[in-house]
């Protein structure tokens, strides 16, 4: 009897592990299939000329320079705007704000905001930044809109990271005569950096890939110049891809595939930077 039970529970375990492997393998295979498909289509188009040329009516001489530079500007601006704001908001909510109904309401709202479709943020950005603030279709308007989009994620990740800093360390700092601010700045924040960076990686990846809000606020699709300052008009890689995909000619589809590869590489590079920062802090803590 006993042996039988053990046999059955072992079978259940094998079954469970099998299911786990399948649910890991299916998305991975799909992802690889997609990557290989894109790579086969696009890899032959990627060369120096492609990276350094402006868009053109002829697919063979078209390039992604404005989109690449635009995306780079956007990411940096978005990070510069959203990280300090998001971390600041999280510090306030987590370390200073009173617990209570209002706090719960805010928390639920932030979680909901993270799930709002990005087009909605585009509409908001169009109304507030492009029209009301008079920023026009500038890089700055785009970065502000993307910042709105990623703020909830940054705030939630930062709060989570602050929350796991042990109470004993907070008390140690306060017992040494630190003010709340000194405690947060010198003890809590350094320990929360890895978690905050994880939030930053997620947000930056999301912002880098977003097309809809930028289309809504009116980023250009055909740009034959590079942005000079935050007030320049701009395009971004996803918009360039979107534009090329909608063309009927096969050659432009190849361009789109090549641009997707470039976008992926940029994304990976941005993540590598964040991961390096995160690991450096984690090592110091461990």
């Amino acid at each position: 009897m006993k042996r039988h039970v053990r046999k059955w529970s072992r079978r259940k375990e094998t079954l469970f592990i099998g299911l786990c492997i399948v649910s890991l393998a299916v998305p991975l295979c799909l992802l690889f299939a997609m990557l290989i498909d894109v790579a086969l289509d696009g890899i032959s188009r990627i060369d120096w000329q492609f990276l350094t040329s402006y868009p053109s009516r002829r697919a063979s001489s078209a390039g992604i320079l404005p989109g690449l530079v635009g995306s780079a500007f956007l990411i940096v601006l978005t990070a510069v705007i959203s990280l300090p704001m998001g971390v600041g908001a999280a510090i306030y909510l987590e370390e200073y704000g009173e617990r209570g109904r209002l706090a719960n309401l805010i928390e639920v709202n932030i979680a909901n905001l993270a799930g709002v479709p990005s087009v909605i943020y585009g509409l908001l950005g169009l109304e507030i930044f492009v029209r009301f603030a008079g920023l026009d279709r500038s890089l700055l308007a785009g970065a502000l809109t993307l910042s709105l989009l990623v703020l909830p994620v940054v705030i939630m990740a930062t709060r989570e990271a602050l929350r796991v800093v042990p109470k004993t360390l907070r008390e140690a700092a306060l017992a040494l005569g630190a003010t709340r601010w000194q405690m947060v700045w010198r003890v809590v924040l350094p320990m929360a950096v890895p978690g905050i960076m994880t939030g930053a990686i997620l947000s930056i990846s999301r912002a880098l890939g977003e097309t809809a809000p930028l289309v809504v606020i009116g980023a250009l699709t055909y740009v034959s110049f590079l942005p000079q300052d935050p007030m320049s008009a701009f395009t971004a890689l996803p918009i360039q891809i979107f534009n090329w995909v909608s063309r009927p000619q096969a050659a432009f589809l190849e361009n789109a595939a090549a641009a997707i590869l470039v976008l992926l590489v940029v994304l990976l590079l941005a993540n590598v930077v964040a991961i390096v920062i995160r690991n450096r802090y984690q090592k110091r803590i461990g």
């Binding site: 042990p166 004993t168 360390l169 008390e171 140690a172 700092a173 017992a175 040494l176 005569g177 630190a178 003010t179 000194q182 405690m183 010198r186 003890v187 350094p190 320990m191 802090y281 110091r284 803590i285």
Partner: peptide, 27 residues
């Protein structure tokens, strides 16, 4: 000053920095 139940040196700091932490925290 206060010493707690569980030893709680600051994990992000060296021994030296831990000793100086009270002074550094408070500038």
């Amino acid at each position: 000053g206060m010493v707690f139940q569980k030893p709680n040196p600051f994990p992000t700091m060296t021994i030296r920095e831990n000793v100086l932490s009270g002074l550094r925290l408070t500038g």
